[in-house]
Computed example of a mutant assay.
Amino acid sequence: MIKALSSLRRGGWWRHGFLALLFAFAAAWGAMAQAALPTPGAPDLSARSYVLLDNTTGQTIVEREPDRPVPPASITKLMTAYLAFEALESGDIAMDDEVLVSENAWRMGGSRMFIEAGKTVTIEELLQGMIVQSGNDAATALAEYIGGNERSFVSQMNATAERLGMEETHFENPTGWPAEGHLMSARDIATLLSRLIHEHPDLYRYFRQKSYTYNGIKQYNREKLLFRNDWVDGGKTGHTEEAGYCLATSGARDDMRLIAVVLGTDSDEARNNQAEALLNYGFRHFEAVAVREGGETLASPRVYKGESDEVPVGLDEDLSVLVPKRQSDELTVTLHLDSLLTAPIAAGDRVGSLRVAFDDDTIAEQPVVALEDNPEGGLVKRLTDSLWLWWDE
């Protein structure tokens, strides 16, 4: 059972007969009392840095140097894909747009989809060539088309990284080709992949595509976990001598989606094994617990000078948290409301917060908002409530 307390900081409520509100959460996770098992330690990995993130709650399960900026190699193409997806959904570009391949794109070294200078290729073909085949030529052609030129597109990449809160990221190109100052952290990569999945779920399907044939050349997705586990649905690999072997990937099992990022391993096999170990660890030992639904009334606190004496308050979106399995009874949920709410109040106005703690540590906090409008009352009501406020002081 989830323990729940409510703290209503509202001066003078005892004068009007208001009682503190106590939440009672039903025990929805098993009828039999069961002692919580200790959660085993996380896998011992050799990766330079890594992070395992729950995609729904945003909670980090395990990490090593997650904020260390390192060369990301072709994982960079996650941002190129993100900007392409944004352009598609905004209508700036279309899947059937034909892109004239520049000599600059054609000359790109490293992994390629083998487009040819002077010929046209569609946006959809370039996306598959970049995501499935990891083509540097495809990523460059997309950047030139969307940004007008490669340098302008890179500026968009850096502006978007800043907007997404990717504090340890800086791009020099759209491919991940080695360049001084071209860096990302494991946490930033996980943030980017999470946003890509949340915001573009239909286009994310390209990341689980196992092969793509262009110009008569069939290439297989470099992410081997797609071929090992049907619950893995893709991300992006990367490799350069400086970066080592890197992988950002995601998988969904048991109504959970996790994101694993491993950077700086010493082989293709190592990056796949270590990312898989992180994902298996998360699915095996943790579970998501629904705390409260968005739009559900949590309380109806006193409002002064309004048409109504109360306003229903709650969360504007569902709140879930991740906890070790069989330990959900250690959760404590506390409602904090602002003191002396005064009209006018509009639906959506923040009036407090809901905090969730596990083992005395806060693991989630979400704003509590008004669920309905409460405009100002008439003159008599405002004057009467002003007297009550004076008395409460």
Rank of each mutant, 00 (worst) to 15 (best):
I2N: 01
W14K: 15
F23N: 07
F23G: 10
A24W: 15
A26Q: 11
R48F: 02
Y50R: 03
T60E: 10
V62W: 02
V70T: 00
P71D: 12
P72D: 04
A73G: 09
S74E: 02
L78T: 09
M79N: 06
L83R: 00
F85C: 06
E89Q: 15
V99A: 09
W106A: 12
M108G: 01
S134D: 05
A141H: 12
G148C: 13
H170W: 12
F171M: 07
E172Y: 03
T175P: 03
G176Q: 03
H182R: 09
A186K: 03
E199W: 02
L203E: 00
Y212N: 03
I217E: 05
L226T: 06
F227S: 09
F227R: 14
K236V: 00
E241M: 08
T249M: 03
G264I: 00
D266W: 00
N272Y: 13
L278Q: 08
V289P: 04
K305D: 05
G306M: 07
G306D: 09
S308M: 07
E317Y: 09
E317N: 13
L322N: 03
P324E: 06
T332I: 12
P344G: 03
I345H: 04
A346I: 00
G348I: 06
L354K: 00
L354T: 02
D360H: 09
A370L: 02
